[in-house]
Design a protein around this nucleic acid. Structure first.
Lengths: 249, 249
DNA sequence: CGAATGATTGACGAATATCAAGCTGCGTGG
DNA sequence: CCACGCAGCTTGATATTCGTCAATCATTCG
């Protein structure tokens, strides 16, 4: 096959730019920790990284395993979760491009993670990555920022799980999805939900059936329109916000 | 009144040691971020800090307010929480000596906090503190460590709120309290709970009544013994662990 | 086309919330 | 010193939300 124009451009950049090709192409770069680095530093980071592709439903890390690597998600959607011995599962969050995976307080991962869609990630061996953290204070600062942001999100979710009704939980979830950068077309308010109803249920502390009922209820009252699987249109964001905040009757 | 021996010792230390008296006396020092600092660095940190006493039920910070200061709890117990407009409240956690309060991803606090018991805290103006973070990488590292630890705790709590029954939640809570350093006499397994049943309920996503019923149920089955208010004795930790993990019938 | 996976809907039941009454211990003031 | 009141806690009766079980539908993929 003949090289396309894009191939030629990329080949040209590869020869002329100092930044490795993989980072050059990376759509998640501006949203990820890499953004904090100079070109020279980025090269060092790329030098210790390996690209990794993960198929849907394949595991990336397992709760309790030795934390040997950290990951920067560059494409696709990941679910992180904790589980009880009897199989009950709580999905902590859904990660997308730019999100960082694997930060743990000890020697072991505190959550499991697997791919929902086909996922691409940059993999950093822990030792080398931690050495770079010390060498590049901006990197550590950015990672700290991301971690404390994740903490605030977890606190939000605690309020949702501890004190909100099923309808409030789903409304909160849909709004959180809307506010995720890049996930939505601002004007059309069209949302894509790559996870199943069961995943949403395990994230919201509900059952699949209750989630489904709430989707139907929202659709019936005109707040949303349920499209083909994985797609939802937000018809009335204000009302959704009222519901999420417990203000709707 | 004549000076006691302790007074004299402290006075002596004050004159001979480079570390400010307040830090010298601080019981929380070994558990707090201060532990990461050399004596010279600790002096710098102390120089920007002010001691603050807070009476029970008084507010320390308010969710949404500009985050102008950070706090290191040195004595007492603090509850942090988020609230809904209609008054529903989710207690995020209970902080004690050595815990750090006020880390927020943006310009505003992400939680409210108030004192349960009489509280003492070191207060650091945000600007100055952040300057020291940059100057002392070990301080930033330690704070990062504490924050990622808090994140792991929040993830635990998400599993508890999303997927555990009332009995499992209370058992999990009691065990978490036991594992907090310094809170317990290891052998006697005697626990003190400075918070009310309503506080525990707001932490576990339950009502006060349900929490009370579960305490009674545990006491009846001999897992715990309820002492004077604020004190509980753990009679059978293994069984409590089974309950917390969902293994008890 | 048929099987499999995910989603929806309905009937019923269980866990927990709500409402209500009474108990306990403590500080206060007559 | 004791009665009172208050705050926190406990216990009971009833209500409600959401989970469980089950049947059906829709879509995709072999």
């Amino acid at each position: 096959m003949n090289p396309t124009e894009t191939d030629l451009v990329l080949e040209f950049r590869k020869r002329t730019s100092a930044v490795p090709l993989r980072c050059e192409r990376c759509g998640a770069r501006s949203q990820s920790i890499c953004d904090a680095l100079s070109e020279r530093e980025l090269q060092k980071l790329a030098a210790i990284s390996g690209a990794q592709a993960v198929a849907p439903n394949r595991t990336i890390i397992d709760e309790g395993d030795p934390a040997q690597a950290l990951f920067n998600i560059t494409a696709g959607t990941v679910r992180t979760y904790r589980a009880l011995p009897d199989g009950r599962r709580q999905i902590i969050g859904f990660l997308g491009p730019g999100d960082f995976l694997g930060v743990a307080p000890g020697e072991r991962y505190s959550v499991s993670a697997d791919a929902i869609t086909p996922v691409e990630a940059c993999r950093f061996p822990k030792r080398e990555f931690e050495a770079l953290l010390k060498a590049f204070p901006k990197l550590e600062e950015r990672l700290f920022q991301k971690t404390s942001n994740e903490l605030a999100l977890a606190q939000d979710q605690l309020l949702t799980l501890g004190r909100k009704t099923a309808a409030e939980r789903l409304a909160t979830f849909l709004l959180a999805r809307m506010n995720k950068r890049g996930c939505q077309d601002k004007t059309a308010h069209c949302l894509d939900l790559p996870m199943t109803r069961a995943d949403i249920a395990d994230h919201l502390g509900l059952t699949m059936e209750t989630v489904s009922r709430m989707f139907s209820k929202f659709a019936e009252s005109g707040v949303i329109a349920v499209g083909p699987p994985g797609r939802v249109e937000i018809k009335n964001k204000d009302r959704l916000e009222d519901i999420a905040g417990g203000l709707a009757i």
